[in-house]
Nucleic acid binder design. Structure first.
Length: 705
DNA sequence: GTAGGGTTAG
């Protein structure tokens, strides 16, 4: 109750006090006009804001109040009278609040000596240095701050060794508003007035430069220090470690980091974070971990930023599997994850297709009331398309639309169309395409590629052709991926309809058109085929060479042309599109089929079996173990992964390979079992048997890697 | 609460 009474009293006092001073000095009463005609909107709003501020401030602090103040009568108090001075807040906390409110007025006032001195009139002439520093330290307006500095300099008349303190405090206003040029100008003024800068001056300038994204300026100022008789200390050193880290100047960052360690200067978590980020940007996660380890050894506690930086480095270096451990450590150290933590984890998990982990991060974010961004939704949906979780994708899409914080964009629709296309949901894919167009987005090549897959799978060849026409009508140039899809559709299409598809392929890529004609028309003449195929492969970008090879081999297989399939595989090996498919060590010979399409993998298997038979025939000794690595991945547009296709294929071949229980994606056989199987096959069996054995490969999917 | 101090994702 008592505090309420106090509040009214002092607020009345301050309100009146302030308004009267401002009107009497900064405006002549005669010229004063009301807001609509005010000469300066800025200063006017300042006054009302400031008076309100002072009002509120005093409302909670004046200890000298009494019940008389309940009266709403407004009393004029001349601020220049001894009484006004007497009535200034006395208790330290009231004093701080009072000064803070004055600063607020200064920050929003017109930058002129007159306005500034009007606001500061209440402090009268005997301003203490402490008060001046307090106010300057809180200044955020770099235009006004120099006038405030000038005012205090006139009132206090400090010696130059005290004046540097006022300058240093003023410099902060430039840092806060990211005005580095202004800071440099103030530095010049300082020198002109004969004030000697100190380490605080430099560390303020260095950090200003960094905050203004001018790390080179930070270096420049750091180098100036000795010429002013300043030697780097813990604070400047720490700022410079970060500045050098920011410019990826590893050597300098490390050398200053070393110096800090040698001098036993303590660096804090944020400096370590910048070092970790430096290595993260360079993709060197090992060094990130080393710095992280040293930080802990030196007794510096990692913060949420440190962990976020570490996770960001993991994301960049694609070491997704380590993310869970970093997160676990973070939690066990009592550091709470924030939005960036979750966003980074989600990007890592979604990118690595860790379905459950990505979805659980999403649920946790929702549970914590965090807003997802379009990018995060899209990454999740993209993952859903890759791993084929259709229900989750639809649920996430609905959540996105109702979130109110973001709207689906072109990528969102693209992912959903892919989700439906991969799962053979033709009408849903078409519906989503319509929704996309209605939302104002044109179909992209990604969308049209998905739809080609979708119609191909549904054996709607005419619709595939329709999509191809649409692509051309939109002025989109078909790319190699799109052509791969057309080839893939061919493997699922009856021969009678080939013409419709080869027409499209020829229009899309002439070279590919003639290669396909060779295959379809079963033309002989190896030399020409290999020449055409290698010209084709040489004409395209490296990253699409493997998908195209995969698709061509799949087409050969589906056309019952195993020798052509081998030709293309050979060509792929020769051009180093496929590498290290076979490997031999003393203990194991292996066949590595990851990232090969089913047709390519089966072709490579038969080549391998042939090579093993030859080895046996020439009395070469087999190693104790033979293995085939298919990987565990699932084909985007097929229900099965390579592993399950292989399992049944190996069974058809009667091959004694068995899935390794402790090594997922591996099929193993012992030397003895392999030998007796190969011998039982006899030398008569050759690669030509491939034809009858690859019927399962006709549902081969395109591999995007 | 009275001159130094920021860092993290895409």
């Amino acid at each position: 109750m008592a505090s309420c009474i106090c509040a009214s009293h002092s607020s009345l006092f301050h309100d009146r006090h302030y308004v009267s001073t401002s009107i009497s000095s900064s405006f002549s009463l005669r010229n004063f006009k009301f807001p609509n005609a005010a000469s300066s909107h800025k200063s006017l709003s300042l006054h009302s804001k400031a008076s309100q501020a002072l009002h509120q401030d005093a409302a909670s602090h004046d200890p000298d109040a009494n019940s008389l103040s309940l009266s709403k009568t407004r009393i004029w108090v001349n601020p220049n009278s001894p009484r006004a001075k007497h009535l200034q807040p006395k208790s330290p906390s009231a004093r701080y609040s009072y000064l803070a409110r004055l600063t607020e007025s200064l920050n929003s006032c017109t930058p002129s000596a007159q306005h500034v001195s009007t606001i500061l009139k209440g402090l009268r002439d005997n301003v203490s240095e402490r008060d001046a520093v307090f106010i300057l330290d809180k200044m955020t307006n770099p235009e006004t701050a120099p006038f405030v500095l000038g005012h205090f300099r006139d009132k206090i008349k400090p010696s130059t060794d005290k004046e540097v303190i006022l300058y240093n405090a003023t410099l902060k206003a430039f840092r806060k508003s990211r005005d580095f040029e202004g800071a440099e100008k103030l530095f010049d003024e300082m020198l002109q007035r004969g004030v000697k800068p100190d380490n605080i001056t430099f560390s303020t300038l260095i950090n200003s430069a960094r905050m203004c994204a001018l790390p080179d300026k930070a270096v420049e100022w750091f180098k100036k220090m000795p010429s002013f008789g300043c030697e780097p200390d813990a604070m400047t050193c720490s700022a410079m470690v970060s500045a050098y880290a920011q410019t990826n100047n590893v050597d300098m960052a490390l050398s200053l980091y070393g110096r800090a360690k040698a001098e036993k200067w303590s660096l804090d978590a944020s400096t370590f974070s910048t070092l970790i980020k430096m290595y993260g940007v360079l993709g060197n996660y090992v060094e990130c971990l080393r710095i992280f380890g040293e930080m802990k050894v030196l007794g510096v506690k990692p913060t949420v930023v440190t962990y976020n930086t570490l996770l960001g480095s993991l994301f960049r270096s694609k070491k997704s599997w380590q993310a869970k451990n970093v997160y676990k450590e973070m939690i066990s150290n009592g550091v709470s994850p924030d939005f960036i933590t979750y966003a980074t984890l989600l990007r890592i998990y979604a990118g690595a297709q860790y379905r459950e982990d990505a979805l659980s991060v999403y649920k946790e974010m929702k549970g914590n009331g965090m807003d997802m961004t379009v990018d995060l939704y899209n990454r999740l949906l993209d993952m859903c398309a890759d791993v084929g979780c259709i229900e989750e994708a639809v649920e996430i899409f609905e959540d996105m639309k109702s979130s109110g914080t973001c709207q689906p964009d072109s990528l969102t629709f693209s992912s959903l169309i892919t989700v439906y296309s991969c799962n053979g949901k033709v009408s849903e894919a078409e519906g989503m395409l319509n929704e996309m167009i209605q939302s104002g987005f044109q179909p992209t090549i990604y969308v049209l590629t998905s739809l080609v897959q979708c119609y191909g799978r549904a054996k709607q060849t005419d619709d595939v052709v329709k999509i191809f026409k649409q692509l051309l009508d939109l002025g989109i140039v078909p790319d190699v991926y799109f052509c791969c899809c057309l080839l893939n559709v061919m493997t699922q299409t009856p021969k009678e309809e080939f013409g419709k598809l080869t027409d499209c392929i020829e229009k899309a890529n002439t070279r590919l058109g003639s290669v396909v004609r060779y295959l379809v028309e079963g033309q002989e003449g190896d030399g020409d085929f290999r020449k055409e195929a290698s010209e084709l492969l040489n004409s395209i970008d490296f990253k699409v060479k493997k998908p195209l090879c995969n698709c061509l081999i799949d087409l050969c297989v589906s056309l019952n042309a195993p020798n052509r399939a081998r030709d293309v595989l050979d060509l792929g090996l020769m051009l180093e599109i496929y590498k290290n498919i076979q490997s031999r060590s003393e203990t194991q010979w292996s066949l590595h089929l990851k990232k090969l399409s089913v047709g390519a993998a089966i072709t490579a298997l038969h080549v391998w079996i042939n090579d093993l038979s030859k080895a046996l025939e020439s009395w070469e000794d087999l190693p104790p173990l033979l293995g085939v690595n298919t990987g565990q991945g699932k084909h985007k547009y097929s229900d099965k992964g390579l592993a399950s296709v292989f399992e049944s294929h190996l069974r058809e071949l009667n091959a004694p390979f068995h899935q390794a229980p402790d090594k997922a994606g591996w099929f193993l056989v012992t030397k003895e079992a392999a030998k007796s199987w190969l011998e039982s096959r006899g030398s008569a069996e050759t690669i030509d048997d491939l034809n009858s054995q690859v019927s399962g490969a006709s549902t081969v999917a395109l591999q995007y890697q």
